[in-house]
Computed example of a mutant assay.
Amino acid sequence: MATPAHWLAGARPRTLPAAVAPVLAGTGVAVHVDEAVWWKALLALVVSLALQVGVNYANDYSDGIRGTDADRVGPLRLVGSGLASPAAVKRAAFLAFGVAGVAGLVLAATTAWWLLAVGAVSVVAAWFYTGGSKPYGYLGLGEVMVFVFFGLVAVVGTTYVQTEEWSDGGVPALLAGVGVGSIACAILVANNLRDIPTDRVAGKMTLAVRLGDRLTRWWYAALLVLAVAALVALACCTTWWALLGLVLALPAVPAARIVLGGAGGPGLIPVLQKTGVAELLWAAGAAAGLVIGR
């Protein structure tokens, strides 16, 4: 029987900065161009966190029933380890998606009903990342999903529900989405780099498997560089205070050294945490700068 601690570990709390960061960045843009609507920001945070937890449980379920996690190097998986039944983990995934749906419904009802379509597409994308008969995560498209939904959609959506306009906040929100999405992708790249040997055996053709070990390591570094470039562009069109987001270098530089230094297997696990912290610092620093520079 899985204990509450096992379920918490299965939710993969180290990935949650990837859900907090876009809401921070989007709210920072909202404050800079207009003003924050804090209860909407909190609801956006609930949506983002619930989707992240739902994705994590959905991946646990789908990879577990396929046998992808039978010989796992990384953090605990509930189905793969046999601690929880596939049905129970599937229910947990849909419960998290339900929480996201309720919070999203409130945001749509108070902002614009077309946001329901965005939410529905987000849930479908989350499930079919590793679910269904032809999961796109097994085709090397996982980074696309992360960049779009945990970068662009999450940041731009957070800004829009608070400002309800595109004219002033559209470009800054888009640039912030690129920065946050790039680092979110880097988290996935580090995870898939670690899993190349087992994913290749299981037939999970992630982008890391397709690129190979060496190119994947440089791809990780390139994503961090893209995040910095997006931050500079954001500062150019808003305020130079946004460059406070460069504090991301504190965890990002050591993480890049580990990756480019050739670490593998368990040696890459700290990179996930450092990259998650880097994403959170990028968003928090940029948001703080946008508020100061208003």
Rank of each mutant, 00 (worst) to 15 (best):
L243Q: 13
V277N: 00
A96D: 07
P266L: 13
P4M: 13
A208R: 08
L78S: 12
V148D: 02
L43Q: 12
A230C: 09
E164W: 04
A30Q: 06
G151V: 12
W7D: 09
A288W: 01
A125T: 13
A19N: 08
V148M: 09
F150Q: 09
T130N: 05
Y57F: 15
L243T: 14
G267E: 13
C185L: 05
V171M: 11
A227S: 15
A230D: 12
C236D: 14
S48T: 11
G179V: 11
L244H: 08
V31A: 15
L116G: 04
V259K: 07
V124K: 01
L272N: 06
L78T: 14
F150L: 13
G101H: 07
L45W: 08
A190S: 14
L78V: 13
A9D: 08
P17E: 10
D60E: 11
S62P: 01
P135I: 12
V259T: 05
L175G: 10
W218Y: 15
V156P: 00
H6T: 06
L49P: 02
T27D: 01
M205I: 00
L280K: 00
V118T: 03
P197L: 03
L243W: 11
L45D: 09
G74E: 07
G101Q: 07
V277R: 04
Y160A: 06
V178K: 11
V291D: 02
Y61T: 08
H32K: 09
A120H: 00
G169E: 09
L95Y: 12
P266F: 00
D195W: 10
M145E: 02
F94Y: 15
G245K: 10
R91A: 15
